[in-house]
């Protein structure tokens, strides 16, 4: 555990809390892509199945459980409790175009052809693109509420901070995982355009609005 990894995890935790608290407080999931949330639930479920087989640390177990519970709670809010506020007309990204290539790639490029390892690899590939339905929704509506922007910023920062963690781990332990690194870089690059808008607009108190 290094400071980049810890900050990355905290950033992820903050993102999850921002999202849940936004939905709960406003009693609305307007502007949130249910499809991205379904993909994240799939990602955490596939990756954290090792909860039952491998014990890493109390921290590790605790965080995994939090991310699993929060992703299912978010889905429950979007598709059940606050479904009347779900903006389904703008959430039209075809997620099979993300899931199927991730499955295929995980079957072809993995560290070890075993059930848990392929699922782990699938989750890494899928996570790298899971935010696309949300970004697509923002680009379709042309704007995002600032709280949604804060959520996206925290969520995007998490994998960005992991990149620094991987650089640090390579330097200090000669340890690296090429699958996680490539996918993590792809994931972070997808947020770049958003990061730019966040810094130039949202942080200056303006609404995140895309140029017409």
């Amino acid at each position: 555990m290094n400071v980049f990894r810890l900050l990355g995890d905290l950033s992820h935790l903050i993102a999850v809390i921002i999202l849940l608290q936004k939905i709960w407080h406003t009693r609305s999931c307007a502007g949130i892509s249910g499809k991205s949330q379904v993909l994240f639930a799939l990602v955490y479920t596939a990756r954290y199945l090792d909860l039952v087989s491998t014990y890493v640390s109390l921290y590790n177990t605790f965080m995994k459980v939090i991310f699993l519970i929060s992703s299912y709670a978010t889905i429950y809010f979007i598709y059940m409790k606050f479904r009347a506020t779900y903006d389904r007309n703008h959430d039209t990204f075809r997620i099979e175009f993300l899931i199927l290539p991730s499955v295929l790639l995980a079957l072809l490029i993995n560290h070890q052809f075993s059930f848990l390892e392929v699922l782990w690899t699938f989750s890494i590939y899928l996570e790298s693109v899971a935010i696309l339905p949300q970004l697509f929704m923002v680009s379709k509506t042309g704007e995002a509420e600032s709280i949604t922007s804060h959520y996206l910023f925290a969520l995007g920062s998490y994998r960005g901070l992991y990149i620094f963690n991987w650089i640090y781990r390579y330097w200090s332990e000669q340890h690296y995982d090429i699958i996680a690194i490539v996918a993590g870089v792809v994931q972070t690059v997808l947020y770049c355009d958003f990061f730019y808008l966040y810094v130039t607009k949202v942080l200056k108190g303006k609404k995140l609005q895309l140029p017409a």
């Binding site: 090792d50 491998t54 890493v56 995994k64 070890q112 340890h175 690296y176 995982d177 996680a180």
Partner: peptide, 10 residues
């Protein structure tokens, strides 16, 4: 590379 050991990450 790794195998398994990086799965300490989240």
């Amino acid at each position: 590379g790794k195998d398994g050991d990086l799965h300490d990450e989240l």
